[in-house]
């Protein structure tokens, strides 16, 4: 049975950032989030996974207003990215190793002033991952056969928050990746019922694979970046979602509309819903939920 584990957790850069003036209480909350990620790392290691199937909403690095698909899969051999802060700092916090290049001391992904996790100027990236090309190709072909018209991308640039999740869960970069992209913040989002069905289809295809696969959905939970609601967190809605997943009612997530998710600050839940479709009605274990100033951070896993 190739699905050997699953988890969902935030990709928020706040898990690696505490600025000097933030007080001890705040730093304690941030550490709780990091500790939750380390619990998920343990789940990845225990599962014996060869491949991590990462479901992530692109932050205008691979896709933008020229073309923004509801779902896409990366089909290249290698994926890479820069971190949300310096590799040395990330290594101190997570233990994540990184590739060093002769003559290169600065690993910012773009010139100063450009959002680092949004840009792809530099080609010599510190975080480099092998891709399970066999599985990504099988998924592309298999999903199209099942009626999901799936775009593919060959760029392979991971945004800084995408990299953050692997800094925590795949620190030695020794697990292969499959990168599955979604639209989590550019309405109209894909419908939750379609996301759940996609998860079911991915599971069917993955079960024919010989690799041991750990599914990881990034993102969430409630937050409203760039809007007049930034700083508001819909903690009640987050609690409701975590309760549903803890009871094994992941299929009920498919009843939401895209506007429901967005209005509760949870567009990125599309990633979690795909994972829920892969897992079915197994109860999830909720590791923690932490409210930081602009976001609710929820951490869960499923044992398979």
């Amino acid at each position: 049975m190739p699905l050997v584990g699953a988890a969902a957790a935030p990709h928020s850069h706040l898990q690696l950032f505490t600025r000097p003036a933030e007080d001890d209480d705040y730093k304690r909350l941030v550490q709780k989030g990091r500790d939750a990620m380390f619990v998920l790392r343990e789940q990845v290691e225990r599962s014996g996974a060869d491949t991590i199937l990462v479901i992530h909403d692109d932050h205008f690095v691979n896709f933008d207003f020229r073309c923004y698909p509801p779902f896409a899969i990366f089909v290249g051999k290698e994926a890479s990215g820069s971190g949300v802060t310096s590799p040395a700092e990330i290594q101190k916090i997570t233990g994540a190793v990184y590739r060093e290049y002769e003559g290169k001391s600065e690993y910012a992904s773009a010139p100063s002033g450009i959002p680092q996790h949004m840009a792809a100027w530099e080609k010599q990236k510190p975080y480099v991952y092998n891709v399970d090309v066999d599985l990504s190709t099988k998924l592309l072909k298999g999903l199209m056969e099942r009626g999901f018209d799936l775009p593919f991308t060959t760029d392979g640039t991971m945004d800084g928050e995408h990299v953050l999740t692997m800094n925590f869960l795949n620190p030695r970069a020794d697990k292969n990746l499959v990168l599955f992209y979604t639209n989590g913040y550019v309405p109209p989002l894909p419908w939750p019922r379609r996301c759940y069905a996609l998860g079911e289809a991915i599971r069917d295809i993955a079960e024919a694979s010989s690799q041991k696969i750990f599914v990881f959905a990034t993102g969430g939970m409630s937050h409203y970046p760039g809007t007049p609601l930034y700083g508001h967190v819909d903690e009640d809605f987050d609690a409701r979602i975590l309760d549903m997943l803890a009871k094994g009612d992941g299929a009920d997530l498919s009843k939401f509309t895209p506007d429901d998710l967005m209005n509760h600050g949870n567009g990125e839940l599309v990633n979690w819903i795909i994972a829920a479709g892969m897992i079915g009605n197994r109860p999830a274990k909720v590791v923690d939920y932490i409210r930081l100033w602009h976001i609710g951070l929820g951490y869960i896993y499923w044992e398979l």
């Binding site: 000097p20 003036a21 409203y224 609601l229 930034y230 508001h232």
Partner: peptide, 11 residues
């Protein structure tokens, strides 16, 4: 927006 509200500020 509510923003940082009562949360500690960074310098």
């Amino acid at each position: 927006a509510p923003g940082r509200g009562g949360w500690p500020r960074n310098s």
